[in-house]
C-alpha cells in the first residue's frame, strides 16, 4: 500500500450542543476507492465538508495529500474534486457553459469539456440550460465538472442518487476507471450493491461514531449469519424452522429433519453486504 491520501485524527464536529461527528479517526490510502457509509444523519456529509475545508472542525487534525485542513486549504484545494450531495450549477448557464467556466478556472484546454460531457453521455444536452435539466442529468453534469481537472482525490457525496440503471452503471464504471488510474476516491452512498461492487474498503458511521472499517468481503465473512430454512410436513401440518449453521445442535437438528421428515423445501438464506449493514447499524442503534 502507498502513502495515506487522507488522514483523519480524532475529528469532532459539534453544532451547538449536538455532536455530528464524534472522535472519528480514519486513514485512506492513495488510489483507494473508499466507501463511507451510514444511516441518514450519521455525519457523512459533515465529514466530507470538513475534508474539503468548508466546515471547521471542533477539534481533531486532518491531513489531505500531506496538507493540513483548513490551515493549508489554498495549497491543497486544486488537488481534489468534490461532488456535493446537492447540485450547485449556475442555473442560467448551459451545461457546456458551466463546464467551460470551470475548465478556464482550472486552466484546462476547452477540449476537456467535450471529453467530459461525452464521458457522462451529456453531449446531446450540452447546449441546454441547466435549469431545464432533469435530476439525473444535473448529477451527471456535476460529476463531469469535477473529473475534468483530473484531481488526485475525489469526494463523492452520493454520486449515483437519482440516476437510472444505465447511468448508475456508467458512473460505477467511471469510478473504477478513475481509481485504476490512480485517483483516490472517497464516496458516500446508500446503495449497498454499489459498495460490494466497487469499494476497496468501507467504513460504517453511525450517529457520528465509527462503528467498523474493513473490506466488503471481510465484512460479509465476519458478520454473515449462515441460516438454513427448512419446511416440512407432519400429520398434515406445514412446519417451518430456521437453523443457524454455526451452532452444533442446530446442525444436528437440520440433519435430523432431512433424514426423518418429509421435507417440502430446504434453502439457505443469502447474506450480503446489505444485511451486514443493517445488522451493524441496527446494533449500534439499540
Amino acid at each position: 500500500m502507498s502513502a495515506p491520501a487522507i488522514e483523519i485524527d480524532n475529528l469532532v464536529v459539534r453544532f451547538g450542543r449536538f455532536t455530528a461527528v464524534n472522535d472519528l479517526s480514519l486513514t485512506i490510502n492513495e488510489r483507494e476507492l473508499f466507501g463511507f457509509l451510514g444511516p441518514n444523519g450519521a455525519g457523512k456529509t459533515t465529514t466530507i465538508k470538513v475534508l474539503i475545508g468548508s466546515q471547521r472542525p471542533t477539534s481533531g487534525t486532518i491531513r489531505v495529500a500531506g496538507f493540513q485542513i483548513p490551515a493549508e486549504f489554498d495549497q491543497v484545494k486544486q488537488q481534489f474534486g468534490y461532488v456535493p450531495d446537492t447540485e450547485n450549477h449556475i442555473e442560467e448557464f448551459t451545461g457546456r457553459e458551466n463546464l467551460e467556466l470551470f475548465a478556464r478556472l482550472y486552466d484546462m484546454p476547452l477540449s476537456t469539456v467535450d471529453e467530459s460531457l461525452a464521458r457522462l453521455e451529456l453531449s446531446e444536452a450540452a447546449d441546454v440550460v441547466v435549469s431545464a435539466y432533469s435530476k439525473g442529468m444535473r448529477r451527471k453534469l456535476l460529476i463531469a465538472r469535477e473529473i475534468m481537472h483530473r484531481p488526485k482525490i475525489l469526494y463523492f457525496d452520493e454520486p449515483t442518487a437519482n440516476l437510472d440503471a444505465h447511468s448508475t452503471e456508467l458512473v460505477r464504471e467511471l469510478l473504477r476507471d478513475l481509481a485504476s488510474q490512480g485517483t483516490t476516491i472517497f464516496l458516500t452512498t446508500h446503495n449497498m450493491e454499489e459498495v460490494e461492487q466497487i469499494c476497496d474498503r468501507v467504513a460504517i458511521l453511525c450517529r457520528g461514531e465509527l462503528v467498523d472499517c474493513d473490506t466488503p468481503t471481510n465484512f460479509v465473512t465476519r458478520h454473515a449469519v449462515r441460516i438454513v430454512k427448512a419446511q416440512f410436513e407432519r400429520e398434515g401440518n406445514v412446519i417451518r424452522e430456521s437453523l443457524d449453521l454455526d451452532l452444533a445442535d442446530q446442525r444436528e437438528r437440520l440433519a435430523e429433519i432431512i433424514r426423518h421428515e418429509k421435507c417440502v423445501r430446504v434453502h439457505s438464506q443469502e447474506f450480503d453486504f446489505q444485511d451486514v449493514f443493517l445488522k451493524i447499524t441496527g446494533q449500534a442503534y439499540t
Partner: peptide, 12 residues
C-alpha cells in the same frame, strides 16, 4: 445555490 463554494474550491 452553492455556486460560490464550487468557485472557492477552484484555483481562484
Amino acid at each position: 445555490r452553492g455556486t460560490l463554494s464550487a468557485i472557492v474550491l477552484s484555483p481562484a
